[in-house]
């Protein structure tokens, strides 16, 4: 029975990783941009939620809702002012720009808020749990998992059911032809990055509610998120969810064997999947 419990915990953790990864997957799928600053942007979002919560006394869930518009604006601005200028055939400039951005955000947060680790106070819901048959489930992990599925579902609806989603897919498949149809790739990219940061803010809420975070927490989260995206396959949002679940389950099983093996087990699962399927589980687009 303990194995079933571990499996469920792993799936819940995987939901959190899928949330980290969803925004990354969207941006990666549409413009082939590897955003090395995504983890730090999530941590930035967590600090923003914390700041709004402290200033207004609101519950973190409401504070996160207030944080969504400024984070969307930040994403839009980042793409318009910076990332659009370096996107192109050469993959090096966007990689290095986002890498520089990651270092800048991390150290700016360190300067602004010290290296102390913080946590978002979500209140009594944190300690509550539900007894589902033989296993006990925390309410927060359950909400996290449900949010992950909802976010992926929402992004998929956006991607396949709306005019904006059509523009996303068209630009992803063939930017030149998309331009002939009156789409401006630069604008599409800006909106996509804005949406990615909205998702990052949702991820930040659950990151901060689940465990302590500090300014240097970004890169490790980014690595798990990327592993989820790559395992899932380029451009497939459900694949990203599956990738997150694989990493989460591998980590909890590793931790169950030996607490020191948690992260290692996640990485090894990543390597194992890619050795069998180099393009991930459910690749949608060719890259």
């Amino acid at each position: 029975m303990i194995w079933l419990d571990t499996l469920i915990q792993g799936l819940m953790l995987g939901g959190l990783y899928a949330l980290f990864a969803a925004g990354l997957s969207l941006v990666f799928g549409i413009m082939r941009l590897v955003n090395l600053a995504h983890g730090d942007l999530i941590v930035l979002g967590a600090y923003l939620i914390l700041g709004i919560g402290t200033a207004t006394g609101l519950n973190p869930f409401l504070a996160a809702a207030l944080a969504l518009p400024p984070m969307f604006a930040l994403g839009w601005l980042l793409q318009t002012a910076l990332l659009n200028r370096v996107l192109g055939e050469d993959i090096l400039p966007p990689l290095l720009v986002t890498f520089g951005l990651s270092v800048v955000i991390q150290n700016a947060l360190l300067m602004g808020s010290s290296a102390d680790s913080r946590k978002l106070p979500v209140g009594p819901v944190e300690a509550q749990s539900l007894a589902l048959g033989p296993v006990n489930l925390g309410v927060m992990p359950l909400i996290t998992f449900a949010s992950a599925v909802a976010v992926i579902f929402g992004l998929n609806q956006l991607f396949y059911r709306t005019a904006l989603g059509r523009a996303f897919r068209a630009t992803s498949d063939d930017p030149v032809t998309a331009q002939l149809m009156g789409i401006r790739p630069q604008r599409v990219f800006a909106v996509a990055t804005g949406i990615a940061l909205v998702v990052a803010t949702i991820a930040a809420l659950y990151l901060g509610a689940r465990a302590n975070f500090d300014p240097s927490a970004g890169p490790a989260r980014l690595l798990y998120a990327f592993e989820a995206v790559i395992i899932g396959g380029l451009g497939s949002l459900w694949g990203t969810l599956a990738g997150g679940l694989v990493i989460g389950v591998a980590q909890t099983f590793g931790a169950a064997l030996n607490p020191e093996w948690q992260i290692l087990a996640g990485h090894l699962a990543f390597v194992a999947v890619l050795l069998v399927r180099p393009r991930g589980l459910f690749p949608r687009a060719n890259d």
Binding site: L96, G100, V104, N107
Partner: peptide, 19 residues
């Protein structure tokens, strides 16, 4: 930390203006 921020900003500026 200022030093790292400056380093990051220089890196970004180089990629934007003098690749």
């Amino acid at each position: 930390t200022v030093y790292l921020i400056v380093l990051g900003l220089i890196g970004i500026a180089i990629m934007l203006f003098a690749r």
